[in-house]
């Protein structure tokens, strides 16, 4: 195990913004204990949903833009991995374009279904591009829309994969 400290992205963002003369970015901060739902069945019987914010889209879809794009994409979970694309302004896309599983673990999760570790995958995964500066748009529009989708999909758990 690494004994060295994790990169403090909040602190480094503050330093970068200071150097550029920008006001400090206001990160989401939730104090109260988050809501917590117990798992109601063994994982190997669970239907698993996937939501990822690394800017994944498929060939044929409209790509994300870089200015507070709070749209999302439906990605069938039986998609050919070679049809997946990645676009994002805030991380190095080299590895995500080589192997989308680094930010959208679709082959990994399909293998976990095959191995019997999880019951099944939802038919559709949801993706967006996480570089959204408006907390309001995420909290009042995007997050509720995605929550509604996964409830309708009748998943037991949702795996969130941010970048």
């Amino acid at each position: 195990m690494s004994t060295r400290a994790p990169v403090d992205y909040i602190q480094r963002t503050r330093e970068q913004y200071d150097a550029l003369g920008y006001p400090a970015y206001e990160w989401v901060h939730n104090e109260s204990p988050p809501p917590f739902a117990e798992l109601e069945k063994p994982l190997k019987q669970c239907k698993v949903g996937l939501i990822a914010s690394g800017g994944i889209y498929t060939r044929g879809q409209i790509a994300f833009h870089y200015k507070d794009d709070f749209s999302y994409r439906e990605i069938p979970t039986d998609i050919e991995t070679s049809a997946l694309r990645a676009t994002h302004f805030a991380y190095d896309l080299t590895d995500a374009r080589r192997d989308p599983n680094v930010v959208f673990p679709i082959d990994t999760l399909r293998q976990c279904v095959t191995d019997g570790l999880i019951g099944s995958l939802a038919d559709v995964a949801y993706t967006f591009m996480g570089g959204i500066y408006s907390v309001r748009k995420v909290e009042t529009l995007l997050a509720p829309a995605l929550a509604e989708r996964v409830v309708k999909d009748e998943v037991d758990v949702v795996l969130l994969v941010p970048v």
Binding site: Y9, R98, N101, V102, V103, V163
Partner: peptide
């Protein structure tokens, strides 16, 4: 892959992977 941001957002459950951003679910290939 960003522990400080996850601590601040405070989700119900999280796992932290000490990898560079853009590799939240592992190494390529």
């Amino acid at each position: 892959s960003a522990r400080s941001i996850t601590e601040s957002a405070n989700p119900p459950r999280a796992v932290y992977l000490d990898y560079p951003l853009g590799h939240t679910s592992g190494k390529p290939d």
